[in-house]
Computed example of a mutant assay.
Amino acid sequence: MGEKSEQKKKYILDKARTVFSEKGYKNVTMKDIVDACDISRGGLYLYFSSTEELFLAVLSDDVTTDDDEAIGAALSGEASAGDMLALFLKEQKKEILRKKNNLTVATYEYFSVHKVSAKDNPLKNQFDTAVRIVEKLIENGVQTGEFYCENPLGCARNLMYVVEGLKISSKTIGISEDAIDRELMYVLEGLVPDDEGA
């Protein structure tokens, strides 16, 4: 694909993300995307053949961008493990609280009716990448004495399950910023060594 085609595809993905975040997944039609992009139906079909293909492309685009930046930051070693973990969780919290361009509802609508293999599931890939990042940060913190943890992988998985639960709660039952802070701190408190040493 040429540069102009790539730019057009990126434009369609950006507009589609907004439409999916506003309407969910199941209520979006190709006409909605055509209208949002102000292009012809044929122009849209040059790039995407269905709302499903388009939605998965939007998810994959989000996952790739976020993961590349987060992995680079986590492995840079320029800040302490605690500072990096705090920064990572701050970004997760922003996503939980984000009202505009939030794909949580659309994502859960899609995956509640479409069975996707684990290797093709961008959410699973995003979750697994986040677990690896947190695990690496915890391991680094254990090596420097910032953290105490006998099972960094288990702790990282647990933390990301909490984050995913908070994302769902924010869209279904509502959750305050204080409640998010409290739940994340509860998990993190287990990493801080006590005064007697571990």
Rank of each mutant, 00 (worst) to 15 (best):
K171H: 12
D61T: 01
Y25E: 03
T64W: 13
S50M: 07
T18C: 00
A81E: 02
V105Q: 12
K9I: 01
V19L: 14
L44E: 08
C155W: 12
T65P: 01
K9W: 03
D194H: 11
K9P: 14
S80R: 03
Y161D: 15
E183I: 00
A36G: 13
C155L: 08
V142N: 10
I12F: 11
V116N: 11
F127T: 06
F111V: 01
I133Y: 11
K23S: 04
A81R: 03
E52D: 12
I12C: 14
K136C: 02
M160N: 14
N158Y: 05
E183F: 02
T18M: 09
A36Y: 05
E196T: 03
Y148K: 14
R98M: 04
L59P: 08
G2P: 11
R17L: 04
Q7Y: 05
L123P: 07
S5Y: 01
K31G: 08
K99M: 00
L97M: 14
V113P: 01
G43K: 07
E6P: 01
K10G: 06
D62C: 09
G154M: 09
Q126F: 15
L75C: 04
I133C: 14
K115L: 08
D14M: 10
F20T: 07
E109I: 00
Q92F: 03
K94V: 04
A36F: 04
I12A: 11
S80D: 06
S76L: 02
A86F: 07
K94P: 02
K124D: 09
N140A: 15
K15D: 00
V105A: 03
M1K: 10
M1R: 03
N140F: 08
K4C: 00
K90P: 06
G190S: 05
N102I: 06
S60N: 13
D32V: 00
D35S: 13
K93E: 12
M185Q: 15
D68T: 00
S76R: 06
E3G: 13
E53K: 02
A156I: 01
L123Y: 02
T29G: 15
L191G: 02
D38C: 09
G42S: 15
V116T: 13
I173S: 15
A179V: 08
N140G: 08
S76F: 03
S112L: 08
F88K: 13
G197S: 10
Y25D: 09
V116Q: 07
L13Q: 04
E3N: 15
M1H: 10
V63S: 09
N151H: 11
D32Q: 09
T29I: 03
T129R: 15
A74T: 01
I173K: 15
K9L: 08
